[in-house]
Amino acid sequence: MSVPVPHPRHQIRAAHTDTTVTVYQAYTPSIGLPAARDGRFPATWKRDRMTWIKPSFLWMAYRCGWGLKEGQETVLAVDITREGFEWALRHACLSHYVRGFHPDRATWRRELRSSPARVQWDPERDLHLRPLSYRSLQLGLAGEASRRYADEWTVGIRDVTPLFREVHGLVREGRAEDAADLLPEERPYPADDGLLGRLVARGSRTPGP
């Protein structure tokens, strides 16, 4: 019998191709439906605000309550270029201060003010939305990164709310195996220490959700 290979504590897992990465966001229908229809974010989408993208289907399910939380009823799968995704990672800093990783709080605050992107590692979730022992990436985009995400990096937007609701329904019926068969294949993203070295405080405790 094969023994499951444990996940690294900090690892980017995503549905990705040679050119794109799929990330998830949830919005009100007034934003999400036009975005999916037109394949781009509408004018009402605020390009000057921080926006968080999530490569994990199940972490998105946890965050939006399977698309049932108010203001998050429309769940989008956004395909962005790998070049854009990696640009954001290279220009990101950690969203929280870690003693022993940052020289001091003042240095971390300066990084936070000057970085157009930030990274947070939150516990990954299972089909019942229970926390797992390893972490899932959240990538926050602001300023230049937010504008590039909306206007340059995004190559496709799909409304995946029906899929979220179907998976949720199967889980509620006790059919977790059937639900698991519907999940997107999220493979480790090829990110070495050159890309993630500044974004993983190894041996430290990162905050939960």
Rank of each mutant, 00 (worst) to 15 (best):
Q120P: 00
H16D: 04
A88W: 11
Y24T: 07
W108C: 11
R118M: 15
T161I: 04
A179R: 15
A88I: 09
L68T: 15
R47M: 14
G197T: 10
V98W: 10
L139H: 05
G208I: 02
E86M: 04
M1Q: 00
W66G: 05
H91Q: 11
F101P: 05
P116K: 01
T206F: 07
H91P: 04
L137Y: 03
P131E: 13
F164S: 00
D104E: 14
A61V: 07
P209K: 11
E73F: 01
R9I: 14
D178I: 09
I12K: 06
R37N: 11
D79P: 01
Y149E: 11
T44S: 10
T74L: 05
I80R: 05
L132S: 06
D181V: 09
R49G: 03
Y24G: 06
R37G: 08
L58M: 05
A88E: 09
D18T: 12
G197C: 12
H102C: 08
L76I: 01
R172P: 02
A35V: 10
T17I: 01
G65C: 00
D38V: 09
C93Q: 07
T81S: 13
A117W: 02
W59L: 13
A14N: 08
P34M: 07
Y27D: 14
R9H: 14
P103V: 09
Y97T: 11
D151W: 04
L58Y: 01
S56Y: 09
W121V: 07
R118G: 14
A179E: 15
K69A: 08
R109K: 13
R125I: 01
P6S: 03
P209L: 12
E186T: 02
P103A: 15
G84F: 02
H128Q: 12
E173P: 00
R47S: 15
H10P: 00
A36K: 08
R130P: 02
S204R: 14
C64Q: 02
P42F: 15
P131N: 12
V21D: 03
A26Y: 10
A117K: 03
R105Y: 08
P4C: 03
E73V: 03
Q25K: 11
I80H: 06
W66D: 02
D79G: 02
Y97R: 11
E124K: 11
S115Y: 06
E185D: 03
L68M: 15
A201E: 09
S204H: 13
P8L: 06
R99D: 14
D151F: 01
D192F: 02
H102I: 10
H91S: 14
S114H: 12
T51Y: 09
P55E: 04
R165M: 05
E177I: 07
M50A: 14
P42V: 11
L68K: 15
P207D: 08
L141Q: 06
D178T: 13
H102K: 10
G156I: 07
G65T: 05
P4W: 05
T17G: 08
P34G: 06
P8F: 04
R113G: 06
T22Y: 01
W153H: 03
Q120V: 07
T17R: 00
V75D: 07
A179S: 10
